[in-house]
Write a protein that binds this DNA or RNA. Structure first.
Length: 978
DNA sequence: GGGACACTCTTTTTT
DNA sequence: AGAGTGTCCC
């Protein structure tokens, strides 16, 4: 290929620092490769003097391959690798010099989380380890640790920073805010240090270390550094705008001797701030290297001029913090192509119209003959934004690949294998047993399982034992002979797998299971259109099994089941499909993933406010500004998320410049929420008004009625009649409102796990203890503090706690709370009217049952009290909770119906903090509560249990692991099997 | 112009 | 669950 004059200038550059500002599609990798080839073939450099650094393995591989092509015999000796791989090799070779076990293992992020969790109580934490939810900050802490390493901050530095804060506080001891900040920072600084020590002890290293420790090593050992400097005479960095502070320090150090540093990048394509990228590296490169040669590449070989102009118009809005301004250069891209196709902007009224319009557009263009499916890419801001468009493609049978980064563990076939493994390693795991029994492998009817499950729940016996001793239990008459047979077979097989698992590896057991059950065969049925995908998913899962086998000494199913569960809980994610497919399919992917790729037609949907640009969400734990060495332009101007908006704009820029021929951007007003969405500001920044107005004519004709909801109406069992009484507790109502499907699992199918969460164990123990005390009090008796605490201690133990230390800390906390409680109660001479008194009343034909923790009567005022073991710290918030509590509303209604008068006051007593939230009963919205009760009753009568896939509903739901609604929205081409 | 309230979103990804 | 933003009403 012929090089342009500026490309040639970069390629022929001989020595000294070189900055190549290479806009999108201007051949930046080509320039690196050509220059390397040039240096080698002209004898200016020997191959082993070349060090080229990239970010991803893929980029390194590609560069190597391309270099191979043009340098057939110079193959050997040069180093092309990622920053991490380079650091890794240095550490393995020389790590001993800074006390690193060179046989270290690199922990992935979820492994780090697990590691931290394991050692959580060896860390001196309080604020960042709340006892009610000790693991809450683990992710945030790991992010912080990684940020610290990206910013080249040593633990010593961090601790010195904390000392400085201490000094500052001494100056103004009344500054509470500063004190609090100091305490938090102190915890964090010491966690960073302790983490590092613990990792070193175990011979672990994390990704951040691979670069950071290498830098540390070079700094500590000038001789090693010197020999590396001597060796790598020419250094190349691709995608320089994505380097973080530490990486740049490493490059500077390595290149100090010869200063032959060539960096290639585009400030307008810096989109990885969230993982530490320091755009200032490229912006300030010329300040670090004033003598640097600068080459600007603006000849674009990819897109039409229209697209480039629009992108340029957009990105101008990031001025003046751009190289174009700072270095006074012209970055306007010039197209090497002559086609002129208008950019489409299509505004729709609803998402389904939008999805429809996009699918139609693709179909039309493909049937027009000039395009094939693989020419199209749908670029979204976030993975989940892709859902509606993918669903429409799927509905129409348009082949597509969605390159999500997660989802493997949510696939039906993988979930089943997980359940199988859990059952094998712990047959008492009722949830998984239930899932496995009802799967289409064993196909036992829901009816039969439900009978057994209720029996198990009542007798508090694990489900598998009910299955095993079916005859011994009374109500089994209701189970058909066919089901009985299936159950017998199921339990026999399960026990035999358990037996087998004593001697076999998890891989072997899984394999046997897949063969024996015929599942593999069924899934590989060629008539089944999804078979290939499912097999791939199963295969991927097997890879995970093998990884485990390779890395652990205990290669048993039980270990594996525990390990993988913890990994998943720690946030391990595996993708379902691969974007690198040659098949003729439409590609759907995030803009981030699209970086470096190109497509003939790029479609960017969902361009509305709050989606693109997305609003800023700062890190949960932020690194203090004072510790950041990276240059932050104009730190004054920070708050108004200007940087964030700029980064989003660059992201949009990257998306637009992926298009070769056509760019189509779309938006809708209605995305399902109550509020109508406004068009993204980026649309107007990219297109001028005329273009937009012209495009406004373009609307989807397809306003047909969507009949999606009708799916719900079909095939439902007959409803429970109106006149039939159903009984509900607050807990049931609450569950139904959280998620109807959760209600079904818990109260109809009776799937319950024997596992009790630590918060429940603790809460119940507190309740039992104070209940005991108060009951005695009403009987004019007295329970002494020691006994109160003893009562509590008896119940506050269990497997649910993170560790023994966690349990002990909770016991301590409970003792403190109870002592407080005791003291207050002893002071008060008020005798409760009722303790744990039961009630029941009707709303229509819904019988509501429950019990009041406590009712007081004081000077004719009736007060209903409910105890909470949690800690709400703010009185206002506590009052608000009391006002909005469905539970208290129900309790008030119950009191009114029972005693024909309303209570006067209701209270939530948060024992954890000693704060009481109270409100007059008048302030409670009873109508709302009644409506919620009615809705629940109606839904249950209609037997409607649709999953409510809510962020929060699912986050803390114990059924997520087996819930069929998770991961079934058509991602990766999977459909719902129902 | 401000306070109360309603609504909406809780990414992006590599090593 | 919690924070941030938009809207409505005075």
């Amino acid at each position: 290929m012929e090089l342009t004059p500026s490309q040639t200038r970069a390629v022929k550059h001989s020595e000294g620092p070189l900055l190549v500002v290479a806009g999108a599609g201007t051949g930046k990798t080509l320039v690196i490769i050509q220059r390397i080839a040039h240096l080698i073939s002209s004898g200016l450099a020997r191959p082993e003097e070349i060090l080229a650094l990239t970010f991803s393995d893929k980029a390194a591989r590609e560069m190597e391959e391309r270099l191979d092509v043009i340098l057939p015999m110079g193959r050997f000796g040069y180093t092309i690798s990622t920053f991490h791989a380079f650091g890794d090799s240095v550490l393995r070779e020389k790590g001993l010099t800074i006390g690193i076990d060179t046989d270290f293992r690199v922990l992935t992020r979820p492994e780090q989380a697990l590691f931290l969790r394991e050692h959580l109580f060896e860390l001196n934490l309080s604020y960042y380890r709340p006892l009610g939810d000790p693991t809450r900050f683990i992710d945030a802490i790991i992010t912080l640790i990684s940020r610290v390493k990206d910013e080249d901050i040593s633990t010593g530095e961090y601790i010195r920073y904390v000392s400085a804060l201490e000094e500052r506080l001494k100056g103004k001891p009344d500054d509470e805010e500063l004190r609090e900040f100091l305490e938090e920072q102190r915890e964090l600084a010491y966690v960073c240090r302790r983490y590092q020590e613990l990792m070193a002890e175990k011979g672990f290293v994390d990704f951040g270390d691979q670069v950071n420790l290498t830098l540390k090593l070079f700094r500590a050992h000038p001789r090693i550094l010197g020999s590396c400097q001597e060796r790598y005479r020419f250094i190349f960095v691709d995608e320089f705008q994505d380097t973080n502070y530490t990486q740049f320090q490493l490059i500077r150090l390595l290149g100090k001797r010869f200063r032959n540093i060539m960096v290639v990048g585009d400030d307008d394509q810096s989109i990885y701030k969230f993982r530490g990228a320091a755009i200032s590296n490229i912006l300030k490169f010329k300040e670090y290297y004033p003598d640097a040669t600068e080459v600007v590449l603006t000849e674009n070989f990819r897109s039409t001029q229209r697209i480039l102009d629009a992108a340029y118009r957009l990105i101008q809005n990031n001025n003046p913090e751009r190289l174009e301004i700072r270095n006074n250069i012209d970055k306007r891209l010039k197209s090497a192509r002559s086609e002129d196709i208008p950019i489409l902007y299509l505004p729709y009224s609803t998402v389904s119209d939008e999805a429809d319009g996009i699918a139609s557009l693709i179909e039309e263009k493909v049937s027009g003959g000039t395009y094939s499916y693989s020419d199209f890419a749908i670029l979204v801001r976030a993975n989940k934004d892709a859902r509606p468009y993918i669903r429409e493609l799927e509905r129409r049978g348009i082949p597509f690949i969605f390159s999500g980064s997660s989802g493997l563990y949510e696939q039906t076939e993988v979930k089943l294998l997980l359940s199988f493994l859990r059952v094998i390693s712990d047959p008492n795991d009722n949830l998984s047993l239930h899932h496995l029994a009802s799967s289409d492998i064993y196909n036992i009817s829901m009816h039969a399982i439900t009978i057994c499950a209720s029996m198990g729940r009542k007798l508090n016996i694990p489900l598998h034992l009910i299955f095993k001793n079916l005859q011994e239990h009374p109500r089994t008459g209701d189970i058909s002979d066919e089901d009985k047979e299936k159950i017998t077979r199921f339990i026999l097989e399960t026990y035999s797998y358990i037996e087998y698992s004593r001697s076999a590896s998890p891989g072997e057991i899984l394999y046997k299971f897949l063969l024996d059950s015929g599942y593999l065969k069924r899934v590989s049925d060629p008539d089944h259109s999804l078979s290939a995908l499912k097999i791939r998913n199963v295969a991927r899962f097997f890879e995970k099994v093998e990884d485990f086998s390779r890395l652990t000494r205990y290669d048993s199913a039980m270990e594996f089941a525990r390990h993988i569960d913890m990994l998943i809980e720690a946030g391990d994610e595996e993708a379902v499909t691969d974007i690198d497919s040659d098949e003729d399919t439409v590609k759907a992917l995030t803009v981030h993933k699209s970086k470096g790729l190109e497509f003939r037609v790029v479609i960017m949907p969902g361009l509305v406010n709050e989606r693109f640009p997305r609003k800023d969400s700062p890190e949960k734990i932020e690194l203090p500004q004072d510790l950041i060495k990276e240059y932050l332009p104009d730190p004054e101007n920070k708050g108004i998320n200007k940087y964030h908006l700029q980064e989003e704009r660059r992201l949009f820029y990257v998306g637009m410049t992926r298009a070769r021929d056509e760019l189509c951007i779309t938006s809708a007003r209605d995305y399902g929420g109550k509020r109508k969405k406004r068009m993204s500001r980026f649309v107007s920044e990219a297109l001028d008004i005329e273009e937009r107005i012209q495009n406004t004519e373009h609307r989807s004709q397809n306003e047909e009625l969507r009949t999606r909801n009708s799916e719900l109406g079909t095939n439902l069992p007959s409803p429970i009649p109106e006149d039939h009484v159903i009984t509900l507790s607050y807990n049931q109502i609450n569950n139904y409102l959280t998620c109807p499907l959760k209600y079904k699992y818990s109260h109809i199918l009776n799937v319950s796990s024997l596992f009790r969460h630590h918060l429940r164990v603790y809460g119940e123990a507190i309740h039992k203890a104070i209940g005991e005390y108060l009951k005695l009090k009403t009987k004019k008796g007295h329970l002494v503090l020691d006994d109160l605490i003893r009562q509590f201690g008896k119940y506050c133990i269990g497997e649910g706690f993170i560790s023994k230390e966690h349990n002990e800390k909770r016991l301590e906390e409970g003792r403190r709370i109870l002592t407080d409680f005791y003291r207050k109660e002893e002071e008060s001479r008020l005798i409760p009217a009722y303790i744990e008194k039961e009630f029941s009343f009707f709303i229509d034909n819904n019988r509501i049952i429950g019990r009041w923790d406590r009712v007081d009567e004081d000077n004719g005022l009736i007060k209903i009290i409910d105890y909470k073991s949690s800690a709400v710290l703010d009185k206002n918030r506590a009052d608000k909770e009391a006002r909005e509590s469905l539970q208290l509303a129900i309790y008030s209604l119950a009191y009114d119906r029972t005693y024909k008068r309303m209570p006067d006051i209701v209270e939530l007593r948060f024992l954890g903090s000693g704060i009481t939230g109270s409100c007059e009963v008048m302030a409670i919205n009873l109508d709302k509560a009644i409506k919620e009760i009615r809705d629940t009753g109606d839904g249950i009568r209609r037997r409607e249990f649709p999953p409510k896939q809510d962020y929060n509903s699912c986050r803390y739901c114990e059924y997520v692991r087996i819930c069929p609604a998770k991961g079934q929205q058509g991602e990766g081409g999977t459909i719902v099997d129902q």
